[in-house]
Every structure is written in C-alpha cells, then in structure tokens.
Amino acid sequence: MIPSFDIVILIFLVVTAVIALTLKDLLASAMVLGIYSFLMCLLWAEMSAVDVAFTEATVGAGVSTVIMIATVYQTTRKSRD
C-alpha cells in the first residue's frame, strides 16, 4: 500500500462516480463507469489484491461496459436526469 497513490485514486473515484450519475447521455455515462471500474482495479492492485484487480479489469471494466453499451444502443441514449 502506498498512501499518496491511494488518496489520489480515491478522489478520482468519487469524481468519476458523480460524473457517471450526472451525465445526461447514457452512452457517456457507461463509458465513465468503465473508467470508474479501471480506477477501482488500480486501487485493488495497489492494495495487493491482485486476483480481485484482475477480475475487475476483465469483468467490471470489460464485459460490464460492453453489455451496458449494447443496452444503450438497443434502447435509448437520452436520460432526463
């Protein structure tokens, strides 16, 4: 664990979480959620949980983002809030 690294990622995490929820474009929201997952993966690698980080990199940032974009493509891209 590296405290300075930790603090920076945690702040970025809160920022990306808020951005993902405030954007009105759902495609952009899904992409920002992918960034959030990658930051989370980085944080877990830093906490020496390498297996969890690997899983999050493949599942959270990879497949989750893709299926969310697939749904946005099949439904609608606009959100009112």
Partner: peptide, 10 residues
C-alpha cells in the same frame, strides 16, 4: 434517479 439505466449505474 428516474432513469432505469442510471439506477443500474448507481
């Protein structure tokens, strides 16, 4: 949030 996809992001 009112949008269902936004709920899932949450």
């Amino acid at each position: 949030k009112k949008n269902l996809i936004k709920k899932l992001v949450g």
